[in-house]
Amino acid sequence: MADAPSETTTQEDSVIRVTGLRTQFGAQVIHDGLSFSVRRGEVMGIVGGSGTGKSVLLRTILGLNTPRMGEIEVLGQNTRTITNALKRRCGVLFQDGALFSSLTVAENIQAPMREHLKMPQYLMDELAALKIAMVGLPPDAGPKFPSELSGGMRKRAGLARALAMDPDIIFLDEPTAGLDPIGAAAFDNLIHELQKSLGLTVFMVTHDLDSLSAICDRIAVLVDKKIRLGTMAEHMRDPHPWIQEYFHGPRARAALKDDIPAVV
């Protein structure tokens, strides 16, 4: 978001571009020739059954796994040669926050600032307090340790750390898993608000149909080692049996009150 206005207005430029990605563990092929791109400023949701490699895809884009074949570009840079400058422009929220347990919430948020920039302590304190307020944590959360927070608060603290350096892209791994429906809805709302205000691109793995329908612009479904991209309405017309079951099962019907008829 720290870019000139001219860049944010061109909607079509893609911030993540994956071409011909193949991921393999031993003889087991997880992804076979995935190609897709994520546009600047959109919210992309990734769904798929257990073991289809949603988290693996996320980790591969982040450069934590090396792909067997194919290229991944994040913000125009190949992830095989990932740099610290690029890492600064990506924020990640891991499933349970992955907060450093020996640091307080405020210190967790300051960790990337301390690492990448030279800033006076009071300014880092001010900025950490600002981020804490931005993610809706109470002011007294700053000096607490992660173990003293509830699951929902840890997620918010993790989000604050992911947003610490004002990244262009944030990656979320099941952000609403383990939250109660009200907490999950509030978290969806928070992500949506921040995404709009900060002009973020969001790439999130989720199983939460409410999140998918509420905040995702496009949804990528991982089936048969391939990816299918589309909006919610497009997926609902997809005849693939798994996708049909996913978007038309009883849980999906409860989450989506629209009456888009099933194909089968």
């Binding site: 804490i132 307020a133 709009k196 205000s197 900060l198």
Partner: peptide, 24 residues
């Protein structure tokens, strides 16, 4: 301040309002 930055500035103002205590 360019219009594209208005939501961001607004967000900071809102966050700061909830959070008067920031001094160590």
């Amino acid at each position: 301040v360019a219009a594209v930055y208005a939501p961001l500035f607004q967000l900071v103002i809102e966050a700061e309002k909830d959070h008067p205590e920031i001094d160590r």
